[in-house]
């Protein structure tokens, strides 16, 4: 669902769910003294929920593409499912894993709707770069917006290039 739901809708539901006035939010506050609404922890949790499908999708697809005989061979050697996953399956999907991590991070970095809904826009607490860009434009401060945008652009660009170079180095030529 997080993949297709508008971010603001997801953010709204999370805001309601974690509201300290009732339900889960009230229980979390009373029991563990944790408040997810308008806090950095809430922002992280919401981002994890929102970005999880971007991580799981490529990893699941990469695992499905591995021959079933790899896991089977490991089982016949007496290895558990956990050990097989950690020592055989996971190391053999390294490029997909890296792609998933980088794309999810980049996606989270630029997140706007969910973050604004659950975190608000509290300076030094929940104001993230993407919201700062919006804020600067709202205040007609195009210089600051330009700096924030350039920083985000550079980070994203470097990450995408790094993934491209890494995957190219690991890709085999069809003529090999």
């Amino acid at each position: 669902m997080p993949l297709v739901l508008p971010p603001s809708v997801l953010g709204f539901y999370l805001l309601v769910a974690f509201s300290p006035q009732h339900g889960v939010g009230k229980w979390l506050l009373n029991t563990f003294n944790i408040q997810f609404v308008f806090s950095f922890q809430g922002l992280v949790l919401a981002s994890v929920i929102y970005s999880m499908p971007f991580m799981i999708g490529p990893i699941k697809s990469a695992l499905q593409q591995l021959p079933a005989s790899l896991a089977q061979a490991s089982y016949t050697l007496g290895k558990s499912e956990r050990e097989t996953f950690l020592r055989v399956l996971l190391p053999n999907i390294k490029p997909s894993l890296l792609t998933a991590i980088v794309l999810t991070f980049a996606h989270t970095l630029g997140e706007f709707g969910v973050v604004l809904m659950i975190g608000g826009n509290i300076p030094n607490v929940t104001r993230v770069a993407s919201i700062a860009v919006y804020d600067s434009v709202e205040n007609m401060d195009y210089g600051a917006a330009n700096i924030y945008s350039l920083i985000l652009f550079c980070i994203t660009f470097v990450m995408v290039i790094a993934v491209f170079v890494f995957n190219k180095a690991h890709a085999k030529s069809p003529l090999e």
């Binding site: 005989s69 790899l70 089977q72 061979a73 490991s74 089982y75 007496g78 190391p91 053999n92």
Partner: peptide, 19 residues
Amino acid sequence: LPQKRMVGFVFQNYALFPN
């Protein structure tokens, strides 16, 4: 479970671990 049977198995496609 296959893990408990501890049978040696040589797969037709070898099933070697690339890593």
